[in-house]
Design a protein around this nucleic acid. Sequence first.
RNA 1: GGGUCCCUAGCUCAAUUGGCAGAGCAGCGGCCUUUUAAGCCGCGGGUUCUGGGUUCGAGUCCCAGGGGGCUCACCA
Length: 511
Amino acid sequence: MQELFAPENLGDQERARLANLEALRAADVATYPARVKRTHTIAQARALYEQGDAGVEPVTVTGRLKRIRVMGKMSFADLEDGSGQIQLVVKRDNLPEGWYNNIWKKLIDLGDFIGATGPLIATKTGELSVDVVEIQFLAKALKPMPDKWHGVKDAETRYRRRYVDLLANPPVRDIFRTRAAVLRALREYLDGEGFLEVETPILQPIYGGAAARPFVTHHNQLHQDLYLRISFELYLKRLLVGGYDRVYEIGRDFRNEGVSFKHNPEFTQLEFYEAYADYYDVMRRTEEMIAHVARQVTGGTVIEWQGHVIDLTPPWTRLPLRQAILDATGIDYEAYPDAASLADAMRAIGHEPSADSNWGKLVDSLMAKHVEPNLIQPTFLIDYPRDVSPLAKASDEDPRQVERFEGFMAGMEVCNAFSELNDPIDQLQRFIDENYRAAHGDDEAHPVDVDYIEALSYGMPPAGGFGMGVDRLTMLFTDRETIREVLLFPHLRSSDSKAEVAAEAEVDEAD
RNA sequence: GGGUCCCUAGCUCAAUUGGCAGAGCAGCGGCCUUUUAAGCCGCGGGUUCUGGGUUCGAGUCCCAGGGGGCUCACCA
């Protein structure tokens, strides 16, 4: 590792930058000073000029040097900080003796962080500029910057080294500002409705609340295997038992499954639970909450996504799942009450269902293939089969169905909610059914959570519960078609298998 | 995991039928005191993802591996 900066391991441009750094040090110029004497952010300097207060006294602005145009005895340069960009005018005769020719023109590199001091002026073409009289180095950049015009396009570089993406492709920074605005608006809405934000364990002895395979980890001192949570559900409902009427959590879920344009192994989830509400109440709240987010983030409730105009204005379409699948495929799944007959019906329309699929999975695959991709406008699919919903309360009218809905938009499932099952005896039976599935090869089936049953036994008020993928919602508001674009550091495979092997060897030695 | 496409200079991209690996930006040297991707002259820069193979000759063809994109499967 010490050889990382050895000349033989550097490219020519990196060697040149390192030589410039050494020359600056030899000239006693500080290259990584601890303090900065900034007087104005670039935005503040611009505001100052617009107020007509420019020229009175010099300002010191700081930032990364993005472009340099040397015209001879004067230069123009563009400096960027987090608030914006400003042009620097650098004249030989305004800098200390020797600085222009020996330091500015020789030792400064694109990408360096510098401070520039001088009065604010407008150039002949009217561009607001700092008329520089003094320059200080703040941090030398030892790597060459990406193309100033094209930026960096390679997806792998963009995701693996997101900092390069962010510094070279300014619009990418807006994605994560929007993401923060989405999160802020969600909290704002829920806080305003009297929900309490809570935090529950990520390391769980028994995972649950969703049909997914977990990541497993281990606590050394306790000699205990633990699971990274696949949902917050069972803990949040314990809080309803405890007496909070409205709770929510925003945090990370982990699911040990494949990656795709809408799946990352860890993703951000919002869940809320509301006592004395049912799934229709939750539907209304969902529309209201997402419309609120839309107004906060975009100023309205109609957005554009990948060429589609999507109208988020409540109310949204409500469509029974059974009807949606019937319309799309001609299959009424209630007419095929077991996996074998449903699979036959699916084969008749060209499906090749895998042999180990249970009935619920078959219904879901019909929905995922024929219904979901066409739900561009916000739509609630409602009333799901009991078999695929072990935590949802059965419908009073039809015990084969549960009071559940999923919200779709942009061809993606965005949220999932139901009237929560609060009958401990029924819940235990559902767990036992799930356990049977697990024993018969369904590795996503729910484990039995006896402690949760015990919690329900103390009495949980009737409640509506809700879960939403915040990343997918962010895709919608940032007009992105893959989840990787809205995650700062999406999961990628290790790029260097040799490095990985070396790291494993070190861990082995440490044990 | 399957299919498929891609990986060439720091970045963005070329390279005809298998025949001397190139351009723009960036870098280096020079000119230039009002530019906006500044301009002009000159120069250097490559493990063509890795390892094998075929061939007189491989960026190009074949095999294996790595990584990425898309897609299918998986994913309530």
